[in-house]
Design a protein around this nucleic acid. Structure first.
Length: 268
DNA sequence: GTGATATGCGGAT
DNA sequence: TCCGCCTATCACT
């Protein structure tokens, strides 16, 4: 379920399955029929992720832009594909494989200048080799708003969602309401480095799992606690439950329109 | 069957 | 600050 690691994983899968092949595209749901018709017959040059945005580069200045939003998902498999159900916005087929997209927030074709404009409004992505974290730091060091708000702002850092926000602030002992300009360069660097570590591990494992071994219930002989996202976490969605490190009840609050979770003892 | 919930985001108020 | 969108899942009846 989609934070940046999911999108990078999808880009890798689509490169592996489809790059270099001419695609067939369909829209069983009908809402992307025109776009599917334009993609059909084109060769996928490459797929890439920037934050939570998935891009397919086709020949002839045709780009596919997908944003999964809260509900979207991409599934793939070996041909033959399952019967297309009416919720499938886009089905791609080639090279003995298929991929189905359903429930996306965005699924559209863009030109190269439109792709450039999209990239221009995104901050550095911890999962991209070309990321320049100093661009994020320049925003954060001047900001009066809480660091928790800044981490979810995709123009500051691209790809971080609500789970990684809560978990990286816990792991780096940063109080979430601390104004960005009070964070300091050293703690920013530590947060960035930890995001790179956590999100790379998320790409590798295909799920978010942030609990270090020494704190893991598994390491203490108990079954790992898994949330609906499939991994193990310190504070995300654990309001009222004891902190895995100090036992203090985890706090939950609303910041902006999003839920925020933190340990008031570990993060001060 | 129904209702609550969700890792996102943009637009209206 | 709220609403709407798009879908799946799970705890309930």
């Amino acid at each position: 379920v989609p934070e940046g690691h999911t999108i990078h994983r999808l880009a890798s899968a689509h490169n592996r399955l489809f790059a270099g092949h001419a695609l067939r595209a369909d829209s069983p749901q009908g809402r992307f029929a025109d776009g599917a018709a334009r993609i059909t017959g084109l060769v996928l040059d490459r797929a890439e992720a920037h934050g939570k945005h998935l891009l397919h580069a086709y020949g002839g200045d045709v780009w596919l832009h997908v944003h999964l939003g809260l509900y979207g998902r991409f599934d793939d498999g070996t041909a033959p594909p399952p019967e297309p159900v009416p919720t499938v916005r886009l089905r791609l087929s080639a090279n003995g494989h298929w991929a189905d997209l359903r429930g996306p927030n965005r699924c559209e074709l863009l030109t190269a200048p439109q792709v450039a404009a999209l990239r221009a409004r995104l901050g550095p992505d911890p999962l991209r080799a070309d990321a320049d974290p100093s661009l994020a730091w320049e925003r954060i060091r001047r900001a009066r708003v809480p660091v928790a708000t800044l981490l979810l702002d995709q123009s500051v850092v691209a790809g971080v969602g609500n789970v990684y926000r809560a978990e990286v602030l816990f792991r780096q002992a940063v109080p979430p309401h601390l104004p960005g300009r009070e964070l300091g360069r050293e703690r920013f660097d530590a947060v960035w480095r930890d995001l790179v570590t956590l999100m790379r591990e998320g790409v590798r494992a295909g799920r978010i799992d942030t609990v270090a071994d020494e704190h893991s219930p598994q390491a203490q002989g108990r079954a790992p606690r898994q949330d609906r996202h499939g991994g193990e976490v310190y504070v995300y969605r654990r309001a009222g439950m004891p902190c895995l490190v100090c036992g203090t009840p985890v706090r939950g609050a609303t910041l902006g329109a999003r839920r925020l979770y933190w340990c008031p003892t570990c993060q001060r």
